[in-house]
């Protein structure tokens, strides 16, 4: 059977009567949580001072609301850009890329006997970002987006463009640090060629796998031998610039021809 607190106990609880012992206060509170009738009685038991205070606060809040122009709606135009271009979280991979390239630039500057690490690593600079631009782990809404008509090469190119816009300035800075031995075209063109190669290969095995495979292959076939021999390969000498431009154009064209392969992102 439910035992209600007496009206006197509720009045004393409402008044904050210090004579009410702790056990009674606790039992009244427990009861009030579950009894609407007693809560209503409690509301009627408040003192005139309490009711006057509540009325005063309510009137003050009403005056503030009437005087304030109200919250402004967030401008849609600003969020639209973010929605379409920056849905991912570029900071982690950008920080990692900048740290690696910065170290490479310092080593290139202070260890002149070594081949330029900036040149050796520039082709790989955008690949972590490109891999992250479309992967289940990096994009929480991957499955939702994969079922929309916008999914395809256009979306991937848009995200890749964001990666390049962020990475190329970093490359420019690190190339400037090692300016005495670094040809800007030999930094930029291999970087673009490897980006195009990642997308093309990605249409077959997935962009994530393609990026990892190309990074491993370049490191094993070019970076390691160059460091062992302490000289740059022919691929990264000024004479190769035209070759890189041609390769970039061909890879980009082939990627565009395979546009339909990007409609279903499960192959990524």
């Amino acid at each position: 059977m439910t035992t209600h607190p007496t009206p006197s106990e509720i009045d004393r609880y409402a008044d904050g009567d210090p004579g009410l012992d702790e056990v009674t206060v606790w039992s009244v509170e427990m009861h009030l949580e579950n009894c609407a009738d007693c809560r209503a009685r409690l509301a009627g038991s408040t003192t005139a001072e309490s009711r006057a205070l509540v009325a005063e606060v309510a009137a003050a809040v009403d005056r503030e609301i009437a005087a304030d122009p109200g919250p402004t709606r967030r401008a849609f135009s600003g969020t639209r850009v973010r929605q379409r271009w920056f849905v991912g979280a570029p900071l982690p991979w950008l920080a990692m890329t900048a740290a690696v390239l910065g170290t490479a630039a310092l080593l290139t500057r202070f260890l002149p006997e070594m081949p330029s690490l900036v040149l050796l690593l520039a082709p790989l600079a955008p690949l972590p970002g490109v891999a992250a631009a479309w992967s289940r782990r990096a994009d929480p809404a991957w499955e939702l987006i994969a079922g929309t008509p916008s999914t395809g090469l256009t979306m991937l190119l848009r995200r890749t463009a964001v990666v390049l816009v962020l990475v190329i300035p970093v490359l420019a800075v690190v190339a400037a640090v090692g300016a005495s031995r670094t040809n800007p075209a030999l930094v930029l063109l291999p970087c673009l060629a490897f980006t195009a190669a990642t997308l093309l290969l990605g249409s077959l095995v997935g962009v994530h796998r393609a990026a990892l495979g190309l990074m491993a292959a370049w490191a094993a076939a070019v970076v390691a031998p160059s460091l062992a021999a302490a000289e740059l390969p022919t691929l990264l000498r000024p004479a190769a610039t035209g070759g890189w431009a041609l390769v970039t154009a061909v890879l980009a064209a082939l990627t565009l021809l395979r546009a339909e392969s990007f409609r279903r992102l499960t192959t990524y």
Partner: peptide, 25 residues
């Protein structure tokens, strides 16, 4: 609506639904 429904935490409800409407062309 997938079983494990992923979303962008910083988006508002309106931004999220608008973004999906845009993706649905």
């Amino acid at each position: 609506l997938p079983q494990h429904f992923g979303y962008y935490p910083r988006f508002t409800v309106r931004e999220f639904v608008t973004y999906m409407a845009w993706l649905k062309e």
